[in-house]
Simulated assay, not measured.
Amino acid sequence: MQLPPARGPLSARMIDGLARGGRVIGKAVASTDPYDEDLQLALWIAYELQYRGFDDVDPDRQWDPAVIAFRSRLERPWIAWLEGNCRITPGSRPVAVQLRAMVDGADGPRLAPYLRRHATREQFREFVLNRSVYQLKEADPHSFGIARLAGVAKAALVEIEADEYGGGRCERMHSELFRTTMRWLLLDDSYGHYVPDVPAVTLALSNVMSLFALHRRWTGALVGHLAALEMTSTLPNRQYATGAIRLGASEEQARYFTEHVEADAVHEQIAAHDLCGGYVQEHPEAVGDVLFGARCALTVDDLFADHLLARWSDPASVKTA
């Protein structure tokens, strides 16, 4: 994967420093949000150094102190926005019960019914194109948490991630199933291929996971984020599968979605009770972070849905930086 084109001074500083092998010089970053194209791209590039990196960037830049320092400056307004919009006060009930109440009280999957009944093939293609930024490395961010957990929580995360990685069979890995769906829609299934084309809010979906994944301080938020994903997966994916088949997909081409209908019905119980419940039992002070991570997942996913639905109904109404 090559470094993407810059979208402003922040991402230009990051890209120029990495591409030329020189020092990445950052400065204070003003308050911003998930719609800030420049900030989200700069963050995505910084985080990607911890995953597969870039063909034209020395792997040792992963731990370049100047890059890490700049990333920290970028993270501050991003964390401030998440804290201001997603932090909630935990209650006294078990964390699994609080997660269930949060998910049940959410607005619901507005995007899924549209894709099921109304989306054109081109709109469904755009949805899949956007989701490829994360889906082609599905489970990788949450796997960072395995080494930080113990006991019941660790076993639960490993059980969930093992299914995401196809139980050791490459062709059953969820990222590979997603590639089949992409090829049906004549999309390039190369890792990161569409990063230059997607909006900031799509990058934000990936960035919130990476923020939690790469900082041990945010382990509670990471497991809460995963729980929210698993607890809100079954119904939308059933509708995505129906929409894909309506538009001509074969069972194999829609299998990425149908696989999640079955797997995540089990995963949501494991994630809420064993993963989050087990983690909070060992770290009772972290219940607020678990709920925070879950709320971040729901909030940013809603913003992504709002973006696509607004674009399809009235392109002029789409919010940009």
Rank of each mutant, 00 (worst) to 15 (best):
I270V: 15
E262R: 13
E126Q: 14
L39V: 11
D197A: 13
R117A: 14
R13C: 13
A96L: 09
V95S: 04
L211M: 08
L99S: 04
R121E: 09
A66V: 02
A101E: 15
N85G: 00
R71F: 05
A305Q: 10
G22N: 03
V261K: 06
V195P: 01
V198D: 01
I160A: 08
P5G: 06
R216I: 10
A112V: 03
Y114P: 01
S31P: 02
R100F: 13
L226D: 04
G84F: 01
A69P: 09
V24R: 00
T120Q: 02
V195L: 12
T180D: 11
W63P: 02
A156R: 00
M173G: 13
I79G: 03
R23D: 14
A254S: 11
Y51G: 09
D36F: 05
E122V: 11
I68L: 15
G293P: 01
G167I: 09
C86N: 05
R246A: 08
G17L: 03
E37A: 12
K27M: 13
Y134E: 07
A204I: 05
C296F: 02
T180P: 04
V300T: 04
A96S: 15
G167K: 00
P284F: 09
L177D: 05
L115H: 01
H267F: 02
A249C: 11
R100D: 15
Q123T: 01
P109Y: 01
R61H: 01
R71W: 05
W63A: 12
D16Q: 12
D58T: 04
G21Y: 02
D189P: 09
A228K: 05
P5H: 07
G192L: 09
